[in-house]
Nucleic acid binder design. Structure first.
Lengths: 358, 358
DNA sequence: GTGAAAGCGCTAACAC
DNA sequence: GTGTTAGCGCTTTCAC
């Protein structure tokens, strides 16, 4: 094992670097000056060669390139983006990598692939004390220096004027400010609730989403509208907060299902909550759907992969991600479009809903 | 609409910045010097205040903080990480955001949440001409400046000595070099093939994975071993390349299933390939599993979410991601551990396998 | 064709 | 307590 390998963390060097040349080959990153020194030229020349600028003698260029590959030099994204204007990377800002955001990510990745842009998905310091405003912070930290544009997933606050193009997916506000993408939350929620009503349910609970998100408010609205339409009075005790998260759903679900007059059906604001409701039901000895019907929202892959496949409202997540990417790409291309795209949401009836127990 | 909002891309500013103060409030990013100027102090002082360093008068600090929040200043990740040593950011280097890598991402995200580290998943310029060596390039571009440590997903080449800790998931080489995590590829593949044999299949095809990945080699090995064990001769024509990708599986699958002596079962090296094999089978009018049995590998959520749920070999992807994160965290903490973790893989029989047609 | 120098935004020594 | 200075790694004039 060479001296440098012993001090580093990686595997052996695959190129034939000469350990004798230690002075010009530090253990840390190989920088542009390391290359310059080893090639006997200035850093400016190395930069020109590496970036394919004109005005370098062929012989010099060749020599530099040889050193570059021998040393395994690669220009630092950080340093170059600090100096340059464009970085060619698109940022995806998320609070957390969970099924919802990763589905969008797949869609974005597919749409961006082959365009020459690189993707940088960033989940920046979202702590419990700090759940609000993360997107503003992340954006400020990256914009203008690291990324050329950003798609922000479920931003909870209005972000200030930014110097880079931004599109928001499932934003706090409805269509307002920057370009946005969302789906038909009200319509989807109405369809879900109506489905339950049509099966014969009357006591239908709702596990709400994150109260700082427009989508959660709209889904609750759809639920209320369908109930009203069916002539069923809203019972406040049957509406609880699940925060779109499994962990936050446990308690509300337990309370809801432990009531003597428990609901016969639950419409959860997203699949993560719905799935947890089902788990809690099982813990309490209730069978789904015989004793309890459950409907979710989103149609993440996990929704249909359990033993009991979830009846849910599908949002075209991959397509929403792809669309967001296309919009951002267009803006990056100079199109000043500010769009508010609305995608359809449709009910998919699977195995977690049935008529109420007799 | 204010002048700055008109020139920027974002929504309206939520803070009460004074448009009159235009000179000190450029449209681009708010920088530390903007803050310094507005607060009437030096940039050094602002830096101290923002980073909570001692040696600043309470009154000054207060004034600076007021300006910071008024202007919405946030320190640039790029600039500060260029200067600082530690960035508190962990990089996840992937070729692409597809179901496999995003499952790992979920696991990593869960394990890292609450540790104070931020996550930066990077999918850097993987073009068709450039499928090999991306991880080396990405690592060089980010290491030492942007990220403190990295987990690399399915690296295809040995990476050179790095200055930062690295753990590789499903690497090119088996256990060698840096810390690695993989699962029991041979055992899983044997179980899958044996399952097919036990159902009565004799003509069992294999759609190989990426030939530059150790896991693909091992899965093929398991397939061969099980065949030999059952006394079934290997038929080279029944082994094709699918490259772990749906798109690359289409042609091989079509050829395989169009043969007059087509196989009655296919063991695909991963779920993406298996799912595509099923699609192709349907196109050709074959029913799964009545006419053709199919087994995959990985158990991504998509495997069990279709109408026909895939029989597959499950790798504990989320756990593998979480484990990788823990190992990296430990290394970041100074532990010089170089580990090679091996996780179990187990067959899950679902709906795409049955005895061969009579 | 090449290199010296400035500067991107920031932090850390070190003066004052 | 505060400001001045140097410099992280790189790109880009602009002299030579």
């Amino acid at each position: 094992m060479s001296a440098s390998a012993a001090r580093g963390y990686g595997a052996s060097v695959s190129t034939d670097a000469h350990p004798a040349d230690l002075a010009s080959e530090p253990v840390g990153r190989v920088t542009i000056s390391d290359v310059a020194r080893a090639a006997g030229v200035s850093v400016a020349t190395v930069s020109k060669v590496v970036n394919g600028r004109h005005g370098v003698a062929a012989a010099t260029a060749e020599r530099v390139l040889e050193v570059v590959s021998r040393l395994g030099y690669e220009t630092s994204l950080v340093a170059s983006s600090l100096r340059r204007r464009k970085t060619n990377v698109i940022g995806i800002l998320v609070a957390e990598f969970e099924p919802f955001s990763t589905e969008l990510l797949k869609g974005i990745s597919g749409a961006v692939g082959g365009t020459g842009y690189e993707l940088l998905a960033y989940s920046g310091g979202v702590t419990d004390s700090n759940r609000v405003g993360w997107e503003r912070r992340s954006l400020s930290r990256l914009a203008g220096t690291l990324i050329d544009g950003a798609v922000i997933v479920t931003p909870t606050v209005l972000f200030p004027t930014t110097s880079i193009p931004v599109v928001a997916i499932d934003p706090h506000t409805g269509p307002a400010g920057p370009s946005t993408i969302d789906s038909d939350n009200v319509g989807g929620a109405r369809a879900a609730t109506r489905h339950l009503v049509e099966l014969g349910h009357r006591r239908i609970a709702h596990v709400r989403g994150r109260n700082d998100l427009e989508s959660a408010r709209l889904r609750e609205q759809g639920y209320r509208e369908s109930l009203a339409e069916a002539g069923i009075g809203l019972e406040p005790a049957l509406v609880r907060d699940g925060g779109y998260r499994a962990a936050d759903t446990t308690e509300p679900a337990r309370e809801l299902l432990s009531r003597h007059d428990r609901p016969t059906a639950v419409f959860a604001a997203n699949d993560l909550s719905a799935l947890r409701v089902i788990e809690v039901a099982h813990e309490l000895g209730l069978r789904v759907p015989q004793d309890l019907s459950v409907v979710g929202f989103d149609d993440i892959p996990e929704a249909s992969s359990g033993t009991r496949r979830l009846t849910t409202v599908a949002q075209p997540l991959r397509q929403m991600g792809a669309r967001a990417a296309q919009m951002l790409l267009a803006m990056l291309d100079g199109a000043g479009t500010e769009e508010h795209v609305h995608m359809p949401a449709r009910l998919i009836v699977r195995e977690t809903t049935a008529p109420p127990p007799a």
